[in-house]
């Protein structure tokens, strides 16, 4: 009798002792299921549903690593919806719980970078590097943020370090590295790097950069040929066309061609200040002072002011003197 009781009692005792663990198992499987559902929703680009599921999840008493996954999914959803301010808030909140998590910090830095908050991006990337000095993502991120922020020499250093560390042959990395060197007036290095980038991938931007480098080096013939190539690669690129027209009009020997280019552009955009200014430059180069002055008056009469208009006003003022 006593033995029977003991036999019956043992399973109860076992259940009582392990209840927490068993329920925990149930919780865990529920949590896993919820994360799986959120992932499915994310994969199906149903971002609001992902956010809803994961926000509920963060309130649960789940293990740290799963809470982190939830935060990452929420942030990724906001990023996918281009709601960057909310992504920043989510990631900042997550970093309060996981201050040493480099993945979260890198994502936050990327969001700052996308939003042009480059100083903040630099701060976050540096924090990652303080913990992991060879983190290649942080090094590349720093290089790009430094370039965008205008710290060209520093950007060059980080691009160099990134390439040394990863042996990267990415056309984009080499292009940005070349751009940093160009902006820091290291034309020789810039040309070498831009040519490597061009070998990997032939893009109009790379050609335009090479043309600019040639021009800065005083190699005008190559500069003109390359900028023409750049434009022919993408005839929709008005920035390349107008740069080409500007260079052409400023060059005394090519000024008539520059004038034609400006006039062609003005047919479609009669009130374009820059094209008008290019026309003015061409007239000046051709010593057609009266027409140059008339063009300046045209610019000056346009509504709204910017550098081009202020420059036109100043030139008009000087001609009056």
């Amino acid at each position: 009798m006593c033995l029977n009781r003991i036999i019956i009692f043992i399973p109860f005792l076992f259940l009582a002792l392990n209840a927490n663990a068993l329920f925990g198992l149930k919780d865990r499987s529920e949590q896993k299921e919820q994360i799986a559902k959120a992932r499915e929703a994310f994969a199906a680009e149903n971002y609001p549903q992902t956010i809803k599921l994961m926000k509920e999840f963060t309130l649960k008493d789940a293990p740290k690593r799963r809470i982190k996954r939830a935060y990452v999914l929420i942030a990724d959803s906001y990023i996918a919806m281009e709601e960057y301010d909310k992504a920043m808030l989510t990631l900042s909140e997550a970093l309060e719980f996981y201050p040493k998590d480099n993945d979260l910090r890198l994502t936050l830095a990327e969001v700052y970078y996308i939003c042009d908050l480059n100083s903040r991006a630099i701060e976050e990337y540096q924090k990652v590097l303080n913990q992991d000095k060879n983190n290649s993502k942080a090094i590349l991120g720093l290089a790009q943020a430094m370039l965008k922020e205008g710290f060209y020499s520093k950007a060059c250093q980080y691009f160099k370090r990134y390439i040394e560390l990863t042996n990267s042959d990415s056309a984009n990395v080499y292009y940005n590295y070349a751009q940093s060197n160009y902006m820091a007036n290291n034309f020789e290095a810039a040309l070498e790097l831009a040519l490597i980038s061009l070998e990997q991938k032939s893009l109009p931007d790379t050609k335009l950069l090479i043309a600019k480098i040639y021009k800065s080096q005083g190699n005008l013939e190559k500069a003109f040929l390359t900028i023409r190539d750049a434009w022919l690669m993408d005839i929709n690129r008005e920035d390349i066309y107008l740069t080409y027209a500007l260079w052409t009009a400023y060059d005394k020997a090519k000024a008539p061609q520059g004038l034609e280019m400006a006039k062609d552009y003005l047919k479609a955009h009669p009130q374009n200040r820059l094209a008008l200014f290019i026309k003015f430059i061409a007239y000046t180069r051709l010593n057609e002072d009266k027409k140059a002055k008339e063009t300046l008056k045209e610019i000056s009469a346009l509504k709204g002011k910017g550098f081009t208009s202020t420059l036109a006003d100043k030139l008009l003022e000087n001609t009056a003197k």
């Binding site: 929709n236 690129r237 008005e238 920035d239 107008l242 740069t243 500007l246 479609a268 374009n272 200040r273 820059l274 200014f277 709204g304 910017g306 550098f307 081009t308 420059l311």
Partner: peptide, 14 residues
């Protein structure tokens, strides 16, 4: 005409 410049971009270019 898919790459039209803004006035600010034109000013920067000049």
């Amino acid at each position: 005409n898919s790459f039209a410049l803004t006035t600010k971009e034109e000013d920067t270019l000049l």
